[in-house]
Design a protein around this nucleic acid. Structure first.
Lengths: 225, 225
DNA sequence: ACCGCGTTATGACAGGCGTCATAGTAGCAA
DNA sequence: TTGCTACTATGACGCCTGTCATAACGCGGT
C-alpha cells in the first residue's frame, strides 16, 4: 500500500493477496487454486510456476503477508493518533474492523485466524506461519506500548491481550453481524490499557479523561485489505 | 456428561457430537459426512435419515450443541469456585483449555469459532447458529457475574469481553502451540474483572489479594468434550 | 402370516479439488 | 537465425465430497 512506485503488482503478489482475501471470507476451503487465479486475474498456469510448493506454499505466504500487513498498520496507527495512549491504539486497531464492517458488511475476518482454525491440527508449516504472523503483529504493538510509557516487561503481555481480544471480538461480531463486540472490548479494555503506563499512577479509578479512548471512526490510514 | 442415566447415546446424538469434534480439529472441511459417521461409529445410511437437511443441518446442530455445552459449563465452574469472583470464573474457563492443551495437545479449538470462520460469509443459517451459540454461552456468564456483584448493566459487556479474549487466546495458543496466551489474558484481565464488582471499591490499585485470580489447573468438572 | 415403519445398506452420480504432464508462447542474448 | 529462459495454456488424472435412489433389514402390532 502506498508503495508510491507506479508499478502494478505482479501476478505472483496478486495471487498471494487474493488468496488472503478468499481465506478471509470462507477459510482455506474457499480459497481454491483455480479461484485464487481467477480472483487475481492471473493465469492459472502461473500457479505451479510461482508456487511449486502447491497450495500449502500459497497459503503460508498469504498468512505471512497478513501478519506483516497487520504489523505495518500498527506503526501507521500510532503516528496517526492525536493522543498516543495504549487505549487509543487499541481503539484504532478495532476501529479498522468497525469501519470495514459498517461499510461493506461482515463477509471477511482475519486470514491468520482462518488458517489457524483450518490447519493448526494438520500441516506444521502453516501453523508455524500463523504463529510467525501473530508475532509479526504483536511485536510492533508491544514496541508501541513501550513508547507510550508501558513498562517493557508488561508490554508483551498487553499486546497479546489486545490481539486476543480483537481476534475474539472479530469472531463474535461476524457471527452476530454486529460491531457490538468490537466496541465493547474497546470500551472495557481502554482504561486498563491506559492505566498500564508507568506514568499513569492514580488515574486508574473511574475518573480522569486523560487517556480516555473513544469508540468510533478512526479515519487512520486506508482499509483496503 | 454425568447425565447419570445409564443410556448409551443414540447414533443421532453421537453424530452431532462427532461433527463438533471434527470441526474443532480442522474446520468444516475436515468434517466430511462419511468421516462423521465413522467417527461416531454410526451407520452411514443414518445420516440422510436423521439429518434430511444435509450437512448444513448437521453442522448447525453441532454448533448449537457447542454453545449449550459452554453455557452449562459456566454454571459448573461457578459452583466449583472456592472464592466466586469474576476473575476466578474467567480463570476457570481458560483453565479448561489450558488443561486440555497441556494434557492432549493443541489439536482442537472452539467449534463455534471454526464454523464462524468457515461459514459466516455464506449460509445464513450456520451463522445464526453461531450467534445463538455465543449468546447461549454469554448468557450464563453474565448471569454469574451479576451474582458476584457486578452491576447488571456491565455484566453483559464483561461477558462479551471474556468470551472474546478467550476465543482469541485459544487461536493464538494453537498457532504458537503454547498456552502462554491463555495464561496472559487470565492474568491481565483478572484484576479488571474483579474490580467491576460494585462492592469492590478501592481494591483496584495493585494490592488486595481479595479477588486474586490464580492461573493454573482448575480441576473443576471434566474436560471430556 | 402379514403389514408397516423406523432404520440401515449400498452404490451411483455429478461436481469440485489439488496436482501434474505436456505443449506452447514471448522475449532477450549471442 | 538459433537457443535459452521465463512464463502461460490446457487438458487430464485420481481422489474426495455431498447428495440421492433404491433396496433391504428388524421388529412390534394384529
Amino acid at each position: 500500500m502506498a508503495e508510491s512506485k507506479g508499478v502494478r503488482y505482479g501476478p505472483r503478489e496478486r495471487m498471494v493477496f487474493s488468496a488472503a482475501q478468499l481465506i478471509r471470507r470462507g477459510g482455506l476451503a474457499a480459497a481454491g487454486m483455480r479461484e485464487v487465479a481467477a480472483h487475481a486475474e492471473a493465469p492459472r498456469g502461473s500457479l505451479q510456476h510461482y508456487f511449486p510448493g502447491g497450495k500449502e506454499q500459497l497459503v503460508n505466504e498469504a498468512v505471512t503477508w497478513g501478519g506483516r500487513y497487520a504489523g505495518r498498520r500498527v506503526a501507521r496507527f500510532v503516528e496517526g493518533l492525536a493522543e498516543p495512549t495504549p487505549g487509543a491504539l487499541f481503539a484504532a486497531m478495532a476501529g479498522q474492523w468497525i469501519d470495514e464492517y459498517t461499510a461493506t458488511g461482515f463477509a471477511a475476518g482475519c486470514p491468520v485466524a482462518a488458517a489457524t482454525v483450518d490447519r493448526a491440527a494438520a500441516g506444521a508449516s502453516t501453523r508455524e506461519a500463523a504463529a510467525a504472523a501473530f508475532a509479526a503483529w504483536a511485536g510492533p504493538v508491544a514496541q508501541a506500548l513501550t513508547g507510550m510509557g508501558v513498562p517493557a516487561e508488561r508490554a508483551g503481555a498487553l499486546a497479546t491481550l489486545m490481539i486476543s481480544a480483537l481476534e475474539g471480538a472479530i469472531l463474535v461480531a461476524r457471527a452476530e453481524q454486529d460491531v457490538r463486540a468490537l466496541t465493547v472490548v474497546v470500551r472495557e479494555l481502554g482504561p486498563l490499557l491506559d492505566a498500564a503506563r508507568s506514568d499513569a499512577a492514580g488515574i486508574d479509578a473511574a475518573g480522569s479523561d486523560a487517556g480516555r479512548t473513544d469508540v468510533g471512526r478512526t479515519d487512520v490510514g486506508r482499509t483496503d485489505v
